[in-house]
């Protein structure tokens, strides 16, 4: 099995001598570093700037780790690589993790990057949605995959979801600007930023401000990794912690590092800077000030469990494992 897999990989690399294999090759040059992959949840952008800083400044190398940052994409779910062991850690979200666990995946959440959920309803100022109560009578554009999110928001705020017209759209601001819908269900850090960069002002209602307490950008690992690869997990999370601390200290440098490391990504510096700024209040809270990056307490876990229950996921606090973070922040 393992042989078969390496063989396939090698053949893939041979088929194209693309630069993508470069990460592994660089690793081979370094001295006996342990390879580990961090599976990101989306394409490279400032959304993962803390990781890039950890990579660029050698935080992981100091811990003897050779980390590969695997980008995600529209057809790249995070769970399979983590379950199969191809990635040591994945960047998921509490609801996706809960769904995967319900399907039998042996995951634990070992850290929480986004303390506040980034889901938001974006609208235009002439027809704004500022509170959930503004939603009835509006046409909302969203991916049908996110129905549970809207349902939860309505349940939490006593809004009749039947009075909202749901228009299934692709994940883009175009339907809003084309007047096809009145508002969009999206992340506060991407489509509103895209509109702002195009010179379109928008109103953003963050769902986390209306009871939708769901941890996002959660770090997941398997039970087996927690048993057998603790040192690597600690090293990886320590690098993350240091990277995100550096990010917070200097957003400009974080954006610069992101752009430098991904020259082929067509990242717009203004949009990246704006996104970097907007995600700060989502990632850093009083709790993280007190206990450190990625932290979760019994209280924040309980809030998330309650929101998950509204979403139809029944989970216990066992899903969270703080031992890695405790080790990171103890040292």
């Amino acid at each position: 099995m393992r042989n078969g897999r390496t063989h396939l990989t090698r053949r893939g690399a041979l088929a194209l001598t693309g630069g993508a294999a470069a990460a592994g090759m660089l690793g081979a040059g370094a001295r006996a570093a342990t390879p580990a992959t961090l599976q990101l949840s989306w394409l490279h952008s400032v959304q993962f700037a803390g990781s890039y800083i950890a990579q660029a400044r050698g935080y992981w190398a100091e811990d003897g780790l050779d980390v590969t940052l695997a980008p995600g994409g529209p057809n790249a779910p995070v769970e399979p690589p983590v379950v199969s062991g191809r990635a040591l850690v994945g960047v998921s979200a509490a609801d996706y993790t809960a769904a995967a666990v319900a399907q039998g995946a042996p995951f634990r959440i070992i850290g929480v990057a986004m303390q506040k959920n980034p889901f938001a309803v974006a609208s235009l100022p002439e027809n704004p949605v500022e509170r959930p109560q503004d939603l009835p009578g509006k046409r909302i554009g969203m991916a049908l995959a996110n129905m549970p999110v809207l349902e939860a928001l309505c349940t939490l705020n006593g809004v009749d979801i039947d009075r909202i017209e749901i228009v299934p759209t692709q994940y883009s601001a175009a339907p809003l600007l084309a007047g096809e819908v009145d508002c969009l269900l999206c992340w506060a850090t991407d489509l509103p930023v895209a509109m702002a960069v195009q010179g379109v002002e928008s109103v953003t209602m963050l769902m986390a401000d209306h009871g939708y307490a769901l941890q996002s950008q959660t770090y997941i690992a398997t039970d087996e990794s927690l048993r057998t690869r603790r040192a690597e997990l600690v090293g990886l999370m320590r690098g993350e912690t240091r990277g995100w601390a550096a990010y917070r200290a200097d957003l400009d440098a974080a954006v610069a590092t992101t752009l430098e490391m991904h020259p082929d990504a067509n990242l717009d510096p203004r949009a990246q800077r704006m996104q970097a700024e907007r995600q700060v209040p989502l990632m850093f809270s009083e709790l993280t000030e007190a206990r450190g990056f990625g932290w979760f307490s019994a209280a924040t876990v309980e809030e998330t469990i309650e929101t998950l229950a509204v979403l139809g996921h029944d989970v216990s606090p066992d899903l969270w494992d703080r031992s890695i973070l405790e080790e990171v922040h103890a040292g």
Binding site: R5, L8, T9, R11, G12, A13, A15, L16, G18, A20, A21, A23, G24, T37, T68, A70, A76, P80, P81, S84, R86
Partner: peptide, 11 residues
């Protein structure tokens, strides 16, 4: 599935 099989790269 192909991504899990091949890992990173153009596979």
């Amino acid at each position: 599935i192909l991504r899990v099989l091949y890992g990173p790269g153009p596979g």
